[in-house]
Nucleic acid binder design. Sequence first.
DNA 1: TACTAGTAATTTTTT
DNA 2: ATTACTAGTA
Length: 786
Amino acid sequence: MDAIFENLTEAQREAVGHIEGPMLILAGPGSGKTRVVTHRIANMIHQGVPPWQIAALTFTNKAADEMRHRVDSLAPNQPVWMGTFHRFCAQLLRRYATMVGLAENYSIYDTQDSKQAMKRAVMAAGVSTTHASPDQIASSISHAKNRLMTPETMQGQILRPLDALAAKVYPVYQQQLLTANAVDFDDLLLHIANLLRENPEIRSELDNKYKYILVDEYQDTNLAQYAIVRALSIDQPNLAVTGDPDQSIYGWRGADLNNILDFEKDYPSVKTARLEKNYRSTPNILRAADQLIRHNRKRKAKDLFTDHPEGDAVVLRMFQDGYQEADGIADEIVHAIAEEGMKPSDFAIFCRMNALTRSLEHALRSRSLPYQIVNGVEFYQRREIKDLLAYLHLVNNPNHDVALMRVINTPTRGIGAKTVERIRDFADYNGIPMLEAARRAKDIEGLAKRAVTMIGKFIKIYDRLAIKATAPLEDLIRFLVEETEFEAYLEKTAVEQQDANPMSNVDELITAAVEFDRQHPEDGSLEAFLEQVALVADTDAIDGETDRVTIMTLHAAKGLEYPRVYIIAVEDDLLPHKRSKENEAQFEEERRLLFVGITRAKERLQLSCCKRRAVRGDTRPVIPSPFLNELPLDEIRRIESTGNRDWFDEEEDYDQSYPESWDLPDEDGSPGGDLDAVSETAPVIAPAGFEIDEVSQLPAEELAEVMKPKKKKNIVVAGLKTGADLLTSGTTPLMSYREGVLVRHSEHGEGTIIEVTGRGPKRTAKVIFPDGEFSFRLAFAKLELV
DNA sequence: TACTAGTAATTTTTT
DNA sequence: ATTACTAGTA
C-alpha cells in the first residue's frame, strides 16, 4: 500500500488517489504518466474495486504490455482488462457479431486486404478511377468511418468530388465486407460505436460491466473512439483519460484534438491533474522542445521543467548528403560505444518516413553495429507468410474472398486470372461468397472444362484442410504446407530471389503459432490466433531486451525514451512533410511530431539535415526545415560536416551541378549568409555559428573491430531485420572497388572491373563478365569482392 | 495458362 | 528504387 504512494509528487499522488468520477490527467513528456496510471490501477484494486470492472484502453499493444507488466509488479495477476481499442472492440464484436450482421468467426481485413476489396468494390460500383484512385477512395471512406458516418449518412451530405465518389462506393464495399463476413480496421470501432448507440440494453450492460475506464493517449482518439468511451461512461462516469495535446500526431487518422481539449466541457465534474515536471530530459533538450512547440497556436500553454543538470547542448548538424548523414551518425555511435561506455541500445534514430532508413541500415551494418528497424519488411507481410495466413483465414472463415483470391492459384495450379474473374462475377451476381461460387463451378457459364477440374482440385484440398480447423495450430499449418506442396513452390520462387532458406519464415510462423497455442490453451485457437496476427503493429515488435540501436519513424517513437537520440532529415517538405502544408492544423501536427521526437531524448540530442538527398533514384537539393528556426539557436551547437568521406578522397572536384551553398537560418531567424563551397582541397569555412565537424573520421574498419559483438548469437525476432542477422552478408567499403578488381555478381558470375566513374552514390563500376559488360551503381549493386 | 519483360505508378505517418 | 500491373510469348 505504501509502495503505491511512495516517491510521488503532489500532483502525481492526487491522480493516483483518484477513483470515482471523471478525471483528466494532462501529462507532459517524461512526466511519469505510465507510473501514475499503473499506480492508480493498483490503488483502485487496493481500495476494493473489483479488477474485472476496470478496462484500460491503449493504442498499441506495446503500451498495453508495458502497463500490464508494471501493474503486475504492484498487484500481481489481477484480471484487469488491458489492451488496444481495436482489440477491445474485436472481442466485443465476437460476442455481438450477429447484431451487426456478421457471424462470430468474422475476419479482420488488414490494409492490404481492404485495398483489394476496395478495388473490387470500386469496379462493382461502376465508379471510374480516372479522377480518384481506389486508394484515395479508401482513405475517404476510412475518414468517413472514423467520423461515424454510415453509407446512408455519407450520401446525405454535401461533399467534395472525391468524397462524393467514395459515397457511391461505400455501400458496395460495406456490402462486400458483410458478404465476406469481414471487417476492416475502422469497422471494428464503427460497429461497436453503432452497436452501443442503437442498443440501449447492451450499452447499459457494458457500461456497468466496465465501471472504471481508463484511456491512454486520449489526444489521439477519433470520433468513433470518443463515442465508444462516452457510451460506456454514462451510468458509471468513472472515466480517466491521460494525454498531452502537444503529442497529438494522428490527426491524419481521424484523431480529433478537441476530444481532449473539450474534455472538461464534456465532464464538468472532472478532476484535472497536471503532470508537468519532466523526469527524462536535460534542460537543454527541454528548452528546445519548449521553444519549438510554443509556435503552435492551437494548444494549451504548458511549462516543461526538470531538476536535471544542464547536460550537453543540443546539436544541429548539417551533412552533405544522406549517405554522409548515415555514416556520420554511425561513426559517432561507434565512437561513443568504444570511448564513452555507451551501448547500442542507448541510441535511437528517428526519421519522418520509412524510406529514409535505408542508408542508415547500410551504415550501421557496415560497422557491425547491431540494430533493429521498427517497421522494415514486416514479418506478417512477407509473401509466403501472407499466403499461409490466407489459407488459415479461409479455413476459419470460408467467406473470406480476399483470402480465396490469394490462395486459389497459390501454388499455381492452373487457375488463371480469367477463371478467377468468372468465379468472382458469378459470386457477385448471386450475392454469395467466392468459395461457394467455386463449388458451383459447373454452373458457371463460359468456364472451360479444364478450369472446372482445376477448381475441383482446389476445393478438395480446401476441404481436407477444413477438417483440421480445430486441430492444434502447429498440426494445421504443417498439414497445410504438406497438402499444398508449399515447400516445393517456395523453392521454385526462391531461386530467382536467391533466398537462402525460404522455409525459415514458415518455420518461424509455426514457432509463433506453437507459442500462441501454449499461451492460449483454452480459446478457439485458430480464430484467436488470426485476430492476434491482424492486430499486431510494427511498434509492438520493438525489442528493448537485446542490445541494439533502434531505427524508427517519429510516429513509432511515441512513448519511448533513449539516452541519445538522432533525428535525421529535418528538412523542408519532409518535416514538415510536403503534404502537410495545405492547412495550419496539419502543419502544427508536424511540429508536434518533431516535439515528440525531441522529447524522447534523455541526455543528448542531434537534429540533422542535408544539403541534398536522394529521392526516388536521383539526388536533389534540399532546404532545411523551417522548424529549425524555431529552436533556441543561440544555445544550440551547430556543426557542419565537411564531406570527408572515403569516396570523396579520390575525387578533387565536387559535382558542380549541385548548389554548393544555401541560406542557413541565422540566430534571429532571418536568412543567413551563404556557405562557402566545400571541396577536398580548399579549407572548409564554417558559416557563422557553425563549428567545423571535429568528430574524428576513424577508419571504419578499425572501429568495426572494436565493435565486434562479443558473442554472436543470432536472435531472430519476428518482423525484424537485426544487424546480427545480417552480419554474415557484410558489405564492402566502396573504395575497395577499383579497376582490375575481381568481383562476383549473383547473376553474371565472376567478372573484372574495367572502369570506375562518378562519386558518392553515383559511383559506378563497369564490369566485364563472361556474358558481357555491365554497369553498377556501387552503393546499390550487390557485388562481392572475390 | 504461366512466365517474362517492360512500363506505370509510387511513398507520410498506423490500428 | 522498388513495386504493381500489362502485354506479349511459349
